[in-house]
Each structure stands twice: as C-alpha cells, then as structure tokens.
Design a protein around this nucleic acid. Structure first.
Lengths: 230, 230
DNA sequence: CACAATCGAGATCATCGCTCTCGCTTTGAG
DNA sequence: CTCAAAGCGAGAGCGATGATCTCGATTGTG
C-alpha cells in the first residue's frame, strides 16, 4: 500500500492542483478560482477533479490554511530575526511583516481576513494555523510594561471584558497582565484594520500608501507598551 | 413628460427592485444576490430587468451607496444626540453606532468594508457617501487636545506621513493638529478592524461578543485624545 | 489470474449574467 | 387624430459555473 504507483500519482496530482489553485488565487482572487479552470489547465475533465476534492469549498479551505500558515511563518521568521531580548524590535518587525506579506499577497490576505465567502463556514482546521500570527504578538506582549495602562485616567475593563480577557489569558498560557492583553487585542485589530483599509480601498485618496501611517501606529503601540530592546 | 403612466410605473418598479435587492442582500449576502432571483420574485423575465439596470454590478453599486448612506446617517444621528459641547460623549456615541449598525447589518457591512468583489471597481459615486462616517469622526477630532500626542517619547510622524497628513488635513477643511489626525486615522482603522474581526469570525472563541473590548478601545481613544464633555 | 478498488471521461442538471429579437403598448409630434 | 418612435416584457439562446452519475479502462492485491 506504500509507494504504489497510484499513491504517488495521486500525491503528485494533488500537489499540482494545489499549485495551480494557489497561482490562480494569487493572480485572480478567490472568486475566480474555478474547478473547471484548474481541470482545463491540467488537461483533465472537470468531473475527474472531484475524485480529489469533494467540493470547491474544500479546495478553498486548503488555500485558507496554507495562507494562514504562510503568513504565520513569515511573521514568526521576521520576529525571530530580532535578538531574543530585543522585544520592541521584535514587535515592530512582526507588525511590519504582517503588512508586508499582505501587500505582497493581497488575494490571500482577502481570503483569510476579508469578508467570509458566502455559505462557507471556516472549519476547525483553520483555527490552528490562524493562531500562529497572534501567538507571536502574545509572546511579545509578555515583555510589555503594564504601568502605562494603569494610570488614574486609564479606563478600566468592565466586568464583562475582564472575564473575557481572563478567559483568553488562560487559553494563551497565562501570565499576561489583563490590561496588556486587552490593549494587545485592540492593537491586533488596529494592525489588520489598517492593512484592510489599505488593501480594500478605504484609504484611497488619503493614505494610498499606508506604510508610514502603519509604522506610526506600530511605534505608538510599542511606546505605550513600553517595549524595550535589551 | 411628467407624471406619465410609464414614468410612475418605472419609478415604482425601480423601487421594488431596490427593496427586494436590499432584502436579499440582508438575508443572504452580496454573493447570493442574483438578477434572476429578483426577477423571479417580481414575476418578470430576467431579461426584463436589464431595461432598468445595465448590469448586476450597477445594482451592487446602488446597494453600496445606500449602505454607506445608511451607516453615515445612523452615525451622524447618534453623534447629534449628544449635546453640542459634549465632545467625548459624541465620539463615544458615534463609535458605538458604527458597531451597532454593523452588527445589525452584517452583510451590508461586509459589502462596504469587506474584501472588494472581484472585477468590481468602486465607481466615483461611492466616495461621497463613504465620507459621511469619517466626517463625523473628523468633526470630533477638532476638539481633541493634542498635548498627549506631543510628549517626549511620542513617536513623531516621519516626513512621508507628515506630508500625507498635511494633504488630508487640507482636503478635510484644515485646522487639525497633524498628530491628532494621524492618531484619528489609526483609531478609525481600529474601530473597523475590531468590527471586522468580530463579524468576519477572527474573534471567534476569544471575543465572540466584541462589545466590551470595543467600548474599551473607544474609551481608550477618547482618553488619549483628551476629549471632554462641556 | 481474477476480482475489487480506483480512476478519467462524457453526459447531464441547475444555476448564473447577459444579449438579441420579436411583438405589444404607451407616448408625443405633426 | 394619426402614426411613427420610443419604451417595455417575454422568450430563446450563449457561455460559463459547481456538482452528480454512469460507464469503461486501468491498477493493485489476494
């Protein structure tokens, strides 16, 4: 059963389909990704592809997972390039990596952070890879100084938010200041909000290149969190 | 030429199409909005609808404009409910209104702030209505106290961002502190980033109800901008 | 070798956006 | 008032989509 001709042929074909699908996604977007186009390009009948993928959605799911993983790996790598004690640098690098990847892969970004495709519910398999990016951010948050977030006029988390934050802290392995986590979650949304505004056209004719504004937001967050190098 | 039977019939039919389209959008999302479904519901042949709309995209464009206008009006109204000198209250009300509308109209929200539909370029007519929401925010920003944003460790805008900000300040009628505008733009992205995370599923199993976190972010921004009532 | 599992092709179905033509009705100018 | 022009709706049709089913052919295994 191992190394059979059919096994290898099947694996090769699956890889081909994935490669072609990824290319189509990158070039024309998720909505233009058609089973028939892939089958044409592979010289197969459309029905033949259904031996390998149960539906177009399954194909999309795979692409979603791959996109999450690609982005996650890219951000992890960027963060790791900074020294182990250079927390601020690591945060900045990770944040800039998010935007860099998104700008380089707009369709993949739209697939994972844009409006969900209709009638498509993200299966369980996608939540794992989706966690990688936020894992990097949470890691950096561990080295934030909560003092800025405990000033007298700093709004406190209400009971509802406190409970949610508490719950998230537990899932994420503990030892994070609640205010830091709340602020981190907001910053997380800021980063992706800025990228989405840039890629989806909301910044058109104001911040067409959102790079400088994005960097500013990152520096702002890093400063507020008192992230330091060394 | 005025008040003719045909004129009124045409207007009534256009209104019907709009109403049905809006309902389909609200119930099933933009991708499921089909000319044929509308024609079926109206007892017309699909081809007949093309006397009224040149294409499905034109229909979508109208829905986009209406969505922007609805959200804009909703936010304007919420902001106006606060007293004229209650700037912080006005900001909070406007921000909460954004999320409230989005949660109540997820498909409309996705249409205007989600990934752009493929091959569809937002025409000029959409930028006007799109400006209403941000107009409210800019108005409030006029009453912000820039002092917090000029501290010694506050990151300065680089030359590129300064120039973009300067340009935006001019288009928006002047008299805004550059740091305030930059911070406001970032906060703008934060609000919509949070809403998108909530509606598009990114917050699933962490902040499923993002209301408390959203409110926290709003209070945070209002405090940083030193917005005050009276 | 024979049998079962796998595979690919082709036909088919329902759906979609959109175009074209044909005939009917309303309109407005002479 | 007439009558041509313009507006309108239906129907057929084109090219495309995702998906299913059946039918041979190929392959791997007992």
């Amino acid at each position: 059963m191992h190394g059979g001709v059919r096994e290898r042929a099947r694996a090769a074909l699956l890889a081909d389909v994935g490669r072609i699908a990824r290319r189509h996604l990158a070039e024309h977007g998720a909505a233009d990704l058609s089973v028939r186009a892939i089958s044409r390009e592979m010289g197969l009948a459309p029905s033949a592809l259904y031996r390998y993928y149960p539906s177009r959605d399954a194909l999309l799911t795979q692409l979603i997972i791959e996109a999450y993983d690609e982005l996650g790996e890219f951000v992890e790598h960027a963060a790791a390039a900074a020294g182990p004690e250079r927390h601020r640098e690591r945060f900045v690098a990770a944040a800039l990596a998010i935007r860099e990847w998104a700008v380089d892969h707009p369709h993949e970004y739209a697939l994972i952070y844009g409006s969900p495709v209709p009638g498509y519910a993200a299966p369980e398999d996608t939540i794992g890879p989706a966690t990688r990016v936020i894992g990097v951010l949470v890691d950096v948050m561990r080295h934030a100084d909560p003092s800025t977030l405990h000033g007298v006029d700093h709004p406190d988390l209400g009971p509802d938010l406190a409970e949610q934050v508490h719950h998230v802290i537990e899932l994420s392995g503990g030892d994070l200041d609640p205010h830091v986590l709340a602020y981190g979650a907001v910053q997380w949304a800021t980063l992706f909000g800025l990228v989405s505004f840039e890629l989806f056209g909301t910044f058109t004719s104001s911040f067409d290149d959102a790079g400088p504004l994005y960097r500013h937001a990152v520096e702002l967050a890093a400063t507020t969190l008192r992230l330091t190098d060394t």
